Simulated assay, not measured.
Amino acid sequence: MEFGTGIEHLQLAYLSILKTAGPILAVALAVGLLIGILQAATSINEATLSFVPKLVIVFITMALISSYMLTTLTDYFLFVFDSIRSIR
Protein backbone atom coordinates (compact mmCIF):
# COMPACT_ATOMS: atom_id res chain seq x y z
CA MET A 1 0.00 0.00 0.00
CA GLU A 2 1.32 3.39 -0.93
CA PHE A 3 1.51 6.40 1.36
CA GLY A 4 -1.26 8.25 -0.47
CA THR A 5 -3.58 5.28 -0.15
CA GLY A 6 -2.96 5.11 3.59
CA ILE A 7 -3.73 8.80 3.94
CA GLU A 8 -6.95 8.34 1.96
CA HIS A 9 -8.00 5.51 4.27
CA LEU A 10 -7.32 7.66 7.35
CA GLN A 11 -9.28 10.58 5.89
CA LEU A 12 -12.26 8.34 5.18
CA ALA A 13 -12.02 6.87 8.68
CA TYR A 14 -12.04 10.31 10.31
CA LEU A 15 -14.89 11.44 8.08
CA SER A 16 -16.90 8.37 9.04
CA ILE A 17 -16.25 9.09 12.73
CA LEU A 18 -17.41 12.67 12.32
CA LYS A 19 -20.50 11.66 10.38
CA THR A 20 -21.39 9.01 12.95
CA ALA A 21 -20.62 10.71 16.25
CA GLY A 22 -20.99 14.34 15.22
CA PRO A 23 -24.77 14.67 15.45
CA ILE A 24 -24.87 12.99 18.87
CA LEU A 25 -22.09 15.18 20.22
CA ALA A 26 -23.73 18.31 18.81
CA VAL A 27 -27.02 17.46 20.52
CA ALA A 28 -25.24 16.72 23.81
CA LEU A 29 -23.40 20.04 23.56
CA ALA A 30 -26.56 21.99 22.83
CA VAL A 31 -28.53 20.35 25.63
CA GLY A 32 -25.66 20.81 28.09
CA LEU A 33 -25.35 24.47 27.17
CA LEU A 34 -29.08 25.03 27.50
CA ILE A 35 -29.23 23.31 30.88
CA GLY A 36 -26.15 25.20 32.05
CA ILE A 37 -27.75 28.53 31.14
CA LEU A 38 -30.96 27.46 32.85
CA GLN A 39 -29.08 26.45 36.00
CA ALA A 40 -27.13 29.70 36.04
CA ALA A 41 -30.29 31.74 35.63
CA THR A 42 -32.16 29.95 38.40
CA SER A 43 -29.20 29.24 40.73
CA ILE A 44 -30.10 25.55 40.91
CA ASN A 45 -26.92 23.51 41.40
CA GLU A 46 -28.25 19.98 41.20
CA ALA A 47 -25.98 17.48 39.44
CA THR A 48 -28.78 15.17 38.35
CA LEU A 49 -30.61 18.06 36.70
CA SER A 50 -27.82 18.37 34.15
CA PHE A 51 -27.11 14.66 33.73
CA VAL A 52 -30.50 12.97 33.38
CA PRO A 53 -32.05 15.19 30.65
CA LYS A 54 -28.85 15.09 28.64
CA LEU A 55 -28.72 11.31 28.90
CA VAL A 56 -32.35 10.91 27.85
CA ILE A 57 -32.07 13.30 24.91
CA VAL A 58 -28.83 11.68 23.70
CA PHE A 59 -30.49 8.25 23.81
CA ILE A 60 -33.48 9.59 21.87
CA THR A 61 -31.13 11.13 19.31
CA MET A 62 -29.25 7.85 18.97
CA ALA A 63 -32.53 6.02 18.42
CA LEU A 64 -33.67 8.49 15.78
CA ILE A 65 -30.45 8.53 13.74
CA SER A 66 -29.41 4.92 14.26
CA SER A 67 -30.29 3.97 10.67
CA TYR A 68 -28.12 6.82 9.35
CA MET A 69 -25.25 5.78 11.60
CA LEU A 70 -25.56 2.14 10.53
CA THR A 71 -25.62 3.10 6.85
CA THR A 72 -22.55 5.30 7.25
CA LEU A 73 -20.57 2.62 9.04
CA THR A 74 -21.69 -0.08 6.60
CA ASP A 75 -20.53 1.98 3.62
CA TYR A 76 -17.18 2.62 5.27
CA PHE A 77 -16.58 -1.02 6.15
CA LEU A 78 -17.59 -2.16 2.67
CA PHE A 79 -14.94 0.22 1.32
CA VAL A 80 -12.37 -1.16 3.77
CA PHE A 81 -13.16 -4.78 2.88
CA ASP A 82 -13.01 -3.99 -0.85
CA SER A 83 -9.63 -2.35 -0.31
CA ILE A 84 -8.36 -5.40 1.57
CA ARG A 85 -9.61 -7.67 -1.21
CA SER A 86 -7.84 -5.59 -3.87
CA ILE A 87 -4.44 -5.79 -2.10
CA ARG A 88 -4.03 -9.42 -2.99
Results as ranks from 00 to 15, higher is better:
Ser43Leu: 04
Ile57Gly: 04
Ala47Cys: 01
Ser66Glu: 10
Ala47Asn: 05
Ser43Gly: 05
Arg88Lys: 14
Phe59Pro: 08
Pro23Asp: 09
Gln11His: 03
Thr42Ile: 00
Leu25Glu: 01
Thr42Asn: 02
Gly36His: 04
Arg85Ile: 13
Leu55Ala: 13
Thr71Phe: 10
Leu34Ser: 12
Met1Asp: 03
Ser66Ala: 11
Ala26Pro: 11
Tyr14Trp: 12
Val27Lys: 08
Leu33Val: 13
Leu29Tyr: 11
Ile17Leu: 15
Val56Arg: 01
Thr20Cys: 08
Ile7Trp: 04
Glu46Trp: 00
Glu8Val: 04
Tyr76Ile: 11
Glu46Cys: 00
Leu78Arg: 12
Gly32Ile: 03
Thr72Trp: 10
Ala21Val: 14
Phe59Ser: 12
His9Asn: 07
Leu49Trp: 01
Ala40Leu: 06
His9Tyr: 14
Val58Glu: 05
Ala13Met: 09
Ile37Pro: 03
Leu55Gly: 07
Val52Ala: 06
Ser67Met: 07
Thr20Lys: 11
Ile35Tyr: 00
Gln11Thr: 03
Thr5Ala: 10
Leu15Asp: 13
Leu18Ser: 11
Thr61Gln: 07
Tyr14Asn: 05
Glu46Asp: 06
Ser67Val: 11
Met69Cys: 09
Val31Arg: 02
Leu70Trp: 11
Val27Trp: 05
Leu29Thr: 15
Leu38Val: 07
Ala47Glu: 01
Val52Phe: 08
Val80Met: 03
Leu78Trp: 05
Val31Thr: 09
Ala28Gln: 10
Ser83Trp: 10
Gly4Ser: 14
Ala40Pro: 01
Tyr68Gln: 14
Leu10Ala: 02
Met69Pro: 07
Ala30Asn: 06
Leu33Arg: 08
Glu2Tyr: 07
Phe79Glu: 06
Arg85Asn: 13
Ile37Cys: 02
Phe77Arg: 06
Leu78Gly: 05
Arg85Thr: 15
Leu73Thr: 10
Gly4Met: 12
Ala30Tyr: 06
Gly22Asp: 08
Met62Thr: 05
Leu29Glu: 09
Met69Arg: 09
Thr71Val: 10
Ala63Ile: 12
Phe51Val: 12
Ile60Pro: 03
Ser16Gln: 10
Thr61Lys: 01
Ala26Gln: 10
Ala47Asp: 04
Tyr14Lys: 06
Glu2Thr: 14
Ala30Thr: 11
Lys19Tyr: 11
Gly32Thr: 01
Asp75Arg: 12
Gly22His: 07
Arg88Asn: 14
Ser86Cys: 08
Ser83Gly: 09
Ile44Thr: 00
Thr72Val: 15
Leu12Met: 15
Ser16Cys: 15
Leu25Phe: 09
Ile84Leu: 15
Asp75Val: 13
Ser66Gly: 07
Thr72Gly: 11
Val52Cys: 02
Ala13Ser: 08
Thr42Ser: 04
Ile37Leu: 13
Val52Asn: 02
Leu73His: 07
Ile60Glu: 01
Ile37His: 01
Ser66Gln: 14
Leu25Gln: 02
Leu55Lys: 05
Tyr14Asp: 03
Leu25Val: 08
Ile35Trp: 00
Met1Phe: 05
Ala30Pro: 09
Val52Tyr: 03
Gly6Met: 10
Pro53Ile: 03
Thr20Leu: 12
Ile57Pro: 06
